[in-house]
Design a protein around this nucleic acid. Structure first.
Lengths: 197, 197
DNA sequence: CCCATACAACCTAACGTTTGTTAGTATTGT
DNA sequence: ACAATACTAACAAACGTTAGGTTGTATGGG
């Protein structure tokens, strides 16, 4: 019943908490929300997460970010053909397959609610997991001569927040068009720009 | 002391509430936060906002959005020269001069916390104030032959969330570069794309 | 084979705080 | 004087959290 071991029940708790925290943020999600989705009482959560809410949040977000890092890197290296466009499309598919996460929203909304130590650690992990791999792919595309020189971190931030924004605004924008089509359009705009050629 | 009249003290309350709600969202901001910034007790807020928290949030966000609509439209019509690039730059300057607002975050985080009627009304106003003017400018640029055919709503959503994401991630990305420079880079990427020409 | 033990997983009950909210009272400025 | 504006005090509800009890299931000894 220690925090590090993984029983099946604990795994269910972590999975639900991860999805809710990732999608709706720290303060908005209550322990009742998590317990409710599991069909149990909030007090029972302390069997699986004795550290309480904030520690559960940090642990589960680090898990989320670690999985994202693997998923994104796999998408980047496995994309065929080896172009930035195919890579970004592959990453977008990975992101859409996961609970919504938004690094900018984490920074602005969630971090002020937790310990500064936890906040700096989490944001460091978020940067490393989400931004850095894409940053590297952008810089590699530049060295290949495929794209012009740009701020890699800027492009990574733009790309990531665009995917999540599209997911959020989807029902308003274009409920009839498949989500993947809209995402691919956004990637095309990022690569080719709005201007005529 | 009715909700519609505007005393100077009430104005101060609305201004602070607007900034906090806009930047950090509905659930994260407590009435104590607002009262604290005004140097008063939370109960005193009910002199100026008798409708309570949710009504204050809706009222103040509608105000915020109405001002944004004017500011954005003014930026669009006043931009010189009359190019999409100059227009988007002008709009970005307006956005940076205002409290941070993020329509995608509103949709995902704030709307589930309030009445469905309030939510649909607010999101309608947000769309009308933030998205539609930019959408129109994009379509006008297309009719001028300056840009290729694109989904105007998609471009508007991308542009708006990019500006706010840059603001959020600024301290991580590039604390030494002026914020306006980074924003202009993002606009250039949106217009010209990453690819070489 | 049966019973005792143990442990995991959930429960109820209660706690101290914080939140939004209401009522009544004091203070301030004109 | 009289509004406008702020206060204190208190409320119910919701929050995170702790303590202790109940259940089911598996393990192991006699």
């Amino acid at each position: 019943m220690e925090g590090t071991e993984n029983s099946p029940a604990r795994e269910r708790v972590l999975t639900v908490a991860e999805r809710l925290f990732s999608e709706r943020g720290y303060a908005t999600v209550t322990l009742q929300d998590i317990a409710g989705q599991l069909g149990m009482r909030k007090a029972s959560l302390y069997n699986h997460a004795p550290g309480g809410k904030e520690q559960l949040y940090v642990e589960v977000m680090e898990r989320n970010l670690a999985r994202h890092q693997h998923g994104i890197e796999a998408a980047l290296t496995g994309a065929e053909p080896r172009t930035l466009r195919a890579q970004l499309r592959a990453v977008s598919r990975w992101l859409l397959s996961q609970p919504a996460i938004n690094v900018a929203r984490m920074q602005r909304i969630d971090m002020p609610e937790i310990t500064p130590e936890h906040a700096t650690r989490l944001m460091g992990a978020a940067y490393q997991a989400l931004m850095v791999p894409i940053e590297r792919a952008v810089e590699a595309a530049y060295r290949r001569g495929d794209i012009r020189f740009v701020n890699g971190a800027l492009v990574a931030g733009i790309f990531l927040t665009n995917i999540e924004a599209i997911r959020d605004l989807y029902q308003y924008d274009a409920p009839e068009i498949p989500l993947e089509v809209v995402v691919d359009d956004a990637i095309d705009i990022l690569l080719d720009g709005l201007h005529r050629r």
